[in-house]
C-alpha cells in the first residue's frame, strides 16, 4: 500500500515533504534523503545529493563546519520540546556558518514552540503527527512584534 506523503510546514506553508528520513540500516533511496550524522561522517552517503543530516541535541554541527557545504538540509531532533539546545545550534548555523539550506525541526515539534524556532533560523517543521498542522500555523500570527532581532532564515535575505 502506498503511504500518504508526509505533510509539514515549510516557509509558513503546509506542503508535502520532498525529503525522506533514511534509517541507518536502510539503503539510500534516489532523491532528497536525510541520514544520521553518524552515517554521514562514516562516509556512507558520500556523493548523494541532495543530502540532509539529522543532528541529535548533543551533537553540534559546528564541530563539522568544514563539511557542512555538502549538506542541503540540516535537521535537529527535539526529543522533548523543552530541550532548547537546537535553538542555539540553529542560530549559530545561520549566523556564524552562514548556512543557507533548510533547517528542520523533527520530533516533539509543537505549536507553542515553533515561532521561537522560526525566529532562531528554523524554516521547516515536522509537527508531531497527532497534532494539527493547520492549528500549528496559527502560532506564526500570535505575536506581531518582538523585542529581539530574529536570525535571518537565509543570510541573503538578512
Amino acid at each position: 500500500m502506498p503511504t500518504e506523503p508526509r505533510r509539514l510546514i515549510v516557509d509558513r506553508q503546509i506542503v508535502e515533504d520532498a525529503w525522506t528520513h533514511v534509517a541507518d540500516d536502510a539503503p539510500l533511496p534516489a532523491g532528497p534523503a536525510i541520514v544520521s550524522r553518524e552515517r554521514w561522517l562514516a562516509g556512507d552517503a558520500a556523493g548523494h545529493a541532495p543530502l540532509g543530516v539529522l543532528y541529535q541535541p548533543d551533537e553540534d554541527p559546528l564541530a563539522d563546519v568544514d563539511r557542512l557545504g555538502e549538506l542541503a538540509l540540516i535537521a535537529f531532533a527535539f526529543p522533548a520540546f523543552s530541550d532548547g539546545r537546537p535553538l542555539s545550534r540553529a542560530r549559530k548555523l545561520r549566523q556564524i556558518v552562514g548556512f543557507t539550506g533548510q533547517i528542520r525541526a523533527v520530533g516533539d515539534v509543537l505549536r507553542d514552540q515553533i515561532l521561537y524556532m522560526w525566529r532562531c533560523g528554523f524554516d521547516a517543521f515536522e509537527v508531531r503527527a497527532d497534532k494539527s498542522l493547520e492549528d500549528a500555523l496559527a502560532a506564526f500570527a500570535e505575536f506581531s512584534v518582538d523585542y529581539q532581532a530574529s536570525t535571518p532564515r537565509r543570510l541573503s535575505e538578512g
Binding site: 520540546f81 542555539s88 521561537y116 529581539q148
Partner: peptide, 13 residues
C-alpha cells in the same frame, strides 16, 4: 527586561 522577554533562543534553558 525587554531583551529577555520571549527571547526565542533562551526560553527553554
Amino acid at each position: 527586561r525587554q531583551w529577555s522577554t520571549f527571547h526565542p533562543e533562551f526560553s527553554y534553558l
